[in-house]
Design a protein around this nucleic acid. Structure first.
Lengths: 280, 280
DNA sequence: ACTCTATTGTGAGAATTCGCACAGATGGAC
DNA sequence: GTCCATCTGTGCGAATTCTCACAATAGAGT
C-alpha cells in the first residue's frame, strides 16, 4: 500500500472536494483523483462515489478515513518535532492573527524582528478563520479568546478596548438619536463587540454590514455612521474621532498560542517574545 | 512532506539496513536510500549517518522514528480493516505455521479448501520465526504456545505428542545404553521437546544438531541415532520406528491465532474452520 | 438570462522516479 | 588466506507520474 495514496485520500476525506484537497497538498486536483483511484485499485475497495460535482465517501471510505485519521495527526506531530529539533534560530515561522491585529500591530514592526534575527523568515497570515496549530497551518497564533484545543499552550499577552468612531464632521452635525451604525455581518453576531453595538444601537439603523474591519473604518471616515473599532485603530487615524459614551467599554483579550511541541524551540521563543513586545 | 518518504524511512528505522527495508517494502534498496535522502532534504534535518556498511540513525532520526512508528501501526490497521470489509469469501489469505505443521498437516489438505472455496488463494509460509499478525505478515498463524501480543485472539485447536524414532534396524541392533541422538541446535534449548530429550539422553551422545525437523527425521532414518519427532510425522513414515519408553510423553498445544480486526471476516472464518479440521 | 466561480474530467508533453546491472567494500566461514 | 554472502554506492535507460491547458457542468449572484 502506497502511503502517498493514503495521504491524498485522507486529505480528500478531510477537505471534502478534490480541489480543496489538492490545494491543501499543493498538487493538481488531477493528481488527487488519480491517487485516490490508485488506492481503490490496490485495496480492491470502492472508497468514493464519483458524482457530477462532488466526491462522496462510501461507507467503506468513511471507515477507512476514520481509522486513518491518526496517521495525519502523527505526520503533523513529526513536522512539529522536526521544527522543534532545529537548534539554531532561523527558518520559516508562520503566524496567524486576526487581520486588524496583524496589519496594525505586527506587520509594521516586523522590520525590527528581521534586524534582530536575519535568519528568520516570517509568514504572516491575517485571517478571520482560526488556523489550526495542530495541523501546523501556523506555528504561532494570536486569538481573541482562550483556545480549548488539546496540546495548545496559551498565554494572555494583551488587552484592547473598543470605542465608537465616526468622522469629525458627522459627529458635529448629527444628534445622538439620529446616529447610524456600521457593523459586522451576522456571522459575527456572537462577538462581544458586536453584541455591545447591537445593544447600544437599539432601534437606530445599521446602515452597513461588512466583514472587514478596515472597510468599517473606511466607511466611518466617509461619514456614513459610527463604527466600533479597536482604539489602537481609531486613535491612530486623524480622519476618525472617538465618540465617548458612558459605561464600561467593551474589550477583548489577546492570547498568544503555541503548540506544546514547539514551546521550547529557540526560534519560536524569539518570535513569541517579539510578538509580546508588539502588544505591550 | 511526502508520506512515502516517511514510509521508507520508518521501514529503514525498523529493519536496520537499507536492504532489509527494501525487501520489506518490495522495492530496490536504491529507492530506499533515495527516499530517505529526499526526506532529509525536505526536513532539512540529518536523520541517518551513512557509514561504510550500515545506515545508523542519528539522534534526530531516532526521535522522528519513534514519533512516526504509530503511523505504520495505523497503516496496518487500515489493511486489516480493508480485509475485514470484504464481504464475500475470497482473496489472498496468508497462513504462518511451524514448518512441520505446515508441510504435514496443512499443505496436503489444501486441495480440499480450494474445492470448497475456489475464490480463496492461500499463501502458506512455514517458518520458525513467528510472523507478526499485527504487521500483517500473516492473516492466520499456528503457534505452539499462547501468544501474548495485544490485539490477537488465540484458540487452542489441537495437541500433539512427541516420541523417539529411529530406523528399525538401529533399534534392533543398539542397546539403550549405547543410544545416540539427534537434536535441535542450541537456539531451541528452551523448547519443551528439546529439554525432554536432554534429560532423557543424559550422558549419551548427541551426534547431530540441526534446526530442521525434516533433517532430523532424515538422519534418524539413516540409522545415525534417535530423534524426537511429532507422532504425526513419525507414525506416517514406514522407515521410522517408535521407541517407547516409560513416563509421560512430552507434547505441545497448537494455537490458532487471528487478529481481532479480522476475526469476523467470512474468508478468515472459512480458512480458520478448515485449519481446525486439519488438526482434528 | 448572464456572468462568475468552483467543481471534476481528458489528453499530451515534460519531469521525475524507479529498477537494473555493476562496483566496491566488509565481515564471517572454512 | 580465500571464498562467500551481505551491504551500500553509481550511472543509465525505461517506466511512471505530474502538471498544464482546456473542456464540461452546476450553482449563486446580479
Amino acid at each position: 500500500m502506497d502511503w502517498t495514496d493514503l495521504q491524498h485520500f485522507l486529505a480528500l476525506a478531510r477537505e471534502g472536494t478534490l480541489s480543496a484537497a489538492a490545494r491543501n497538498l499543493n498538487v493538481d486536483h488531477v493528481t488527487v483523483a488519480r491517487r485516490v483511484a490508485a488506492l481503490e485499485a490496490s485495496l480492491l475497495l470502492k472508497l468514493v462515489d464519483r458524482r457530477p460535482r462532488s466526491y462522496e465517501l462510501t461507507e467503506d471510505g468513511k471507515r477507512i478515513a476514520k481509522i486513518g485519521a491518526p496517521m495525519a495527526e502523527t505526520a503533523f506531530a513529526i513536522e512539529r518535532a522536526v521544527q522543534a529539533s532545529k537548534s539554531g534560530i532561523g527558518g520559516e515561522i508562520t503566524i496567524s492573527a486576526p487581520p486588524s491585529l496583524a496589519n496594525v500591530l505586527i506587520a509594521p514592526k516586523l522590520i525590527r524582528l528581521r534586524r534582530l534575527h536575519p535568519g528568520i523568515r516570517i509568514k504572516l497570515i491575517g485571517e478571520k478563520r482560526t488556523a489550526s496549530l495542530n495541523r501546523r497551518e501556523a506555528d504561532l497564533a494570536l486569538r481573541l479568546s482562550r483556545p480549548t484545543e488539546p496540546g495548545l499552550i496559551a498565554r494572555k499577552i494583551g488587552y484592547f478596548e473598543f470605542a465608537l468612531y465616526g468622522s469629525p464632521n458627522y459627529l458635529k452635525t448629527t444628534p445622538p438619536h439620529a446616529f447610524t451604525f456600521v457593523a459586522y455581518d451576522s456571522s459575527m453576531d456572537e462577538a462581544p463587540q458586536q453584541r455591545w453595538l447591537m445593544r447600544f444601537a437599539a432601534s437606530r439603523e445599521i446602515v452597513l454590514r461588512t466583514n472587514d474591519l478596515e472597510n468599517q473604518a473606511a466607511a466611518a471616515r466617509t461619514g456614513i455612521g459610527l463604527a466600533v473599532l479597536p482604539k489602537f485603530l481609531g486613535e491612530a487615524d486623524p480622519l476618525l474621532q472617538r465618540h465617548d459614551i458612558g459605561g464600561r467599554p467593551v474589550g477583548r483579550e489577546v492570547w498568544l498560542v503555541v503548540h506544546r511541541d514547539l514551546r521550547r524551540t529557540p526560534t519560536i521563543r524569539a518570535v513569541a517574545g517579539f510578538i509580546e513586545d508588539c502588544l505591550a
